[in-house]
Design a protein around this nucleic acid. Sequence first.
DNA 1: ATGAATGCAAAGGTTTTGCACCCCC
DNA 2: GGGGGTGCAAAACCTTTGCATTCAT
Lengths: 175, 175
Amino acid sequence: MKTKSKKNASHLLPCGRAPIASPTRASDRKTFTQWKAVLDLEIESKGLNKSRPREQILEIIVNQLEHFTVPDLVKAVQKSHPELGAATIYRSIPVLVEAGILLESLSDSSRMAIYEVNSGEHHDHIVCTDCHQIFEFHDERIERAQNELTKKLAFQVISHRHVIYARCDKFSKKA
Amino acid sequence: MKTKSKKNASHLLPCGRAPIASPTRASDRKTFTQWKAVLDLEIESKGLNKSRPREQILEIIVNQLEHFTVPDLVKAVQKSHPELGAATIYRSIPVLVEAGILLESLSDSSRMAIYEVNSGEHHDHIVCTDCHQIFEFHDERIERAQNELTKKLAFQVISHRHVIYARCDKFSKKA
DNA sequence: ATGAATGCAAAGGTTTTGCACCCCC
DNA sequence: GGGGGTGCAAAACCTTTGCATTCAT
C-alpha cells in the first residue's frame, strides 16, 4: 500500500529506506561554473578580490558535500588542498552565505551549524534519530498556517527553521 | 475578539509590545517542591544519589530562570553558591533533562543550547531578531499538518523544533 | 600602490574529562 | 565500604583574531 516508494531502489539510505523525493531535483542544481559566476558577482559587487582558495572551496562544496559542518568542510578541502588554512575556510563561509550560495540550514546534535547549497526552493528537515540521515520536506499547509499565525500576532517573519526528529520505521524494524 | 491580549499592559516587553498569551499559565507551573519530588524520583529510579548541589541548581532554575544557556545558569548559580563548580552544573543538565524537568528548547544565534523548565504543554518559539525576546506559540493546524505529513512519509516522530525568526513590528517602528 | 586575502599561531569561549577527595546509602 | 558526586585544573574542541606576507586590481 505505502510501498510504492520503490522507484529508486538504487540509492537506498543507510537505514534501508528509499529517499524521500526532495523538493529539488538533481537536474535543477546549479553547476560549479554557475555558482562560480554567482560568487564572482558577489565579489565584484562588494569590492572584494577573486582568489584561488575561495574557488577551490566552492568546488569542493558543490561537487562533494550535501549537508556539512565547517569542520567537515575543512577536512574535505584540506584533503585535496592541504595548503589551505582552516581560517581561510572559516572566513569563506560568510562570503558564500552572503552570496546566497550556502544556507545555514540546521544544527547537529552538538549544535554545530550545518550548511547546504541553496537549492532555491525553501524546505525544512527531518532528521532520523537512528541513522542520522537528513531528509527534506516542504509542506504548503504548514507554511500557510505559519504565515497566518505570524500575521495575526503582528510579527514580520524573517525566516524559520522547522526540524522534525524522527525515526525511519524501516530502520527501527531492522535494529 | 482576538484583541484581548491587552489584559496585562503591566508587563510590556522590551520592544514595547504586550506579551503573547503563553500556552502555559503561571498558575500551572510546578513549584520547587514539586520539581524536587520529580528529581528525587528520577534519582531513585536510576540508582543515583541525592545531593545538595543538584538541589541548589534546581532551585535557581525554577525560581529565577526563563530561557537560559548553561553559562547563564553557571553565573546565576555561582552568584548564590560560589562554591559550586561549573563542571557540576554542566553535569546536572542531562540529569534534569532526563527527569523531564528541563527541555532543550532552541539555540541562540551563537548556537548555544537554550533550556527552559518543562511547562508540560508543547509549544514552539518565535525569536525577535530586533529585541531578542523569545515568544511561545502553539498552533494546532501546524501540529496536525506535521503529524499527517510524517505519517504519510512513514516516520515515527520523536520531537520537533519549530523556530520562527521575526521582528515585532512595534519595535521596528520605534527604532 | 593599495587594499584584500592568506597562513600560521595564539587567543577565546564553551564543554568535557581526569583525578583526588567527599558524601550518600 | 562502595559507588556516586564534587571541585579543580587541564584538556578538547570549535571558532575568531592578530600579524606578517602575498596576491589581485
